[in-house]
Design a protein around this nucleic acid. Sequence first.
DNA 1: TGGCCTAATAAACAGTGTTCACTCTTTATG
DNA 2: CATAAAGAGTGAACACTGTTTATTAGGCCA
Lengths: 236, 236
Amino acid sequence: MRLREATTAEIKATALKHMASSGTAAISLRAIARDMGMTAGAIYSYFDTRDNLVSVLIADVYSGLADTLEAAIEACPKDDAAAQVLAFGQAYRNWAVNNPEEFRLVYGDAVPDYQPPEGGAAAEAEHRSCAVLTGIVAAGWPKAQHLYIGSDHSWSDFDPAFAELIRQSFPDLPPAAVALSLRLWGRMHGLVSLEVYGHLRPQVQDPQKLYRTELVDLSKSLGHVPVGDSPSVVSV
Amino acid sequence: MRLREATTAEIKATALKHMASSGTAAISLRAIARDMGMTAGAIYSYFDTRDNLVSVLIADVYSGLADTLEAAIEACPKDDAAAQVLAFGQAYRNWAVNNPEEFRLVYGDAVPDYQPPEGGAAAEAEHRSCAVLTGIVAAGWPKAQHLYIGSDHSWSDFDPAFAELIRQSFPDLPPAAVALSLRLWGRMHGLVSLEVYGHLRPQVQDPQKLYRTELVDLSKSLGHVPVGDSPSVVSV
DNA sequence: TGGCCTAATAAACAGTGTTCACTCTTTATG
DNA sequence: CATAAAGAGTGAACACTGTTTATTAGGCCA
């Protein structure tokens, strides 16, 4: 039935609308139903439970983030890992700052009592995002690997399924590179999540500038040597 | 009244107990009161509102974290910035991993509809934690400053009150060093918050190892040159 | 004893997720 | 054409939440 899909989509859209305007905690079945001219109980023919709806929302939003990230590096030269990591980093922060509630939904636990299921659809989007970053590291690895000759990381450090997935896409990539890509993710996520959750504003006037400094320093992890001494060469 | 203080403390303790066992969303006035053999309404003679109670809890917990961090670097040689930053980083992660609900309370927005007040008691603990990290950077700055000669950071990048506070404690420290300390905080926070929120486990078998690698790399930002090539020299 | 303050209560209000018996409409089949 | 089946939605109920308010019990002091 087309109508069923349409209603499902409308429920999700309404939920996201409420979330964007009133915060993640405002995802209330009753409020959604009221907004749509229905009853709360009616939603249960589309989603088993509220957590189920939230799970689907998280998967959708996360998938949208993955799209954004993929699109961001798509516009970069394929062999310029430094440009790619800068683009990725900027896209990550821009998305988070412009969609703070979505960010909280995906990376926080804003929804009361919600417990994420094992390996849901969200896991797929997470793997996609990770893969994008790993692709960047893979592109820059020839120039970067000399920085990690002493690394003691091995494939057993990672989840077997994840490691297998990575090795399929990038057969020649060593575990040290995978560790690097996860660390890069962590570095970006740190400043961004501090900012989104309001822990940077009290101290920093311009979080973007601080973040840009971090990104430039971060690009050095890929063997990139910035032209000139000033980070102002970075296009934002 | 002594009795009043005791009851206030018991309310806070009960709230923290519930939070630790059933998550941050379980901070329910009714549940707390039930546990204490009172009525929910009675709590309102001790705390104006639930958000008020949460604010006090956050301040307490954050203050405890600051104590932990201060104690961690207290045990380090005063002039060894690298050892200090490693100790700080390990203490930060250990605290977060061992007290995930406290971490979520302070750095997330786990409590539904809670809005943090401007410059509450939590801000003081945040400044304390920042100051600890800035102290580490200050200790290592003589050996590290050559890495940041091209920095274009200025005092105007920071909040005036925060900048003034820093300059009182560390008169000779340039703004680039303050930016560095905030970035170090961000780097630690990134991997830790990803881990606490469950975004690392699906990919990484041993988050601690990844984090240690990051810490070692991070100590290089302070001009530290690790002995040997292996990060195994780091005492955990 | 009378007055006062404080702590605590019970009941109410509006909101939440969830379930369930029931209705109405549409669709397909004998 | 008539009848059965399935789909979609309702409205009332249950147990829970934070919060407010009127009211009561107990201690303290003059």
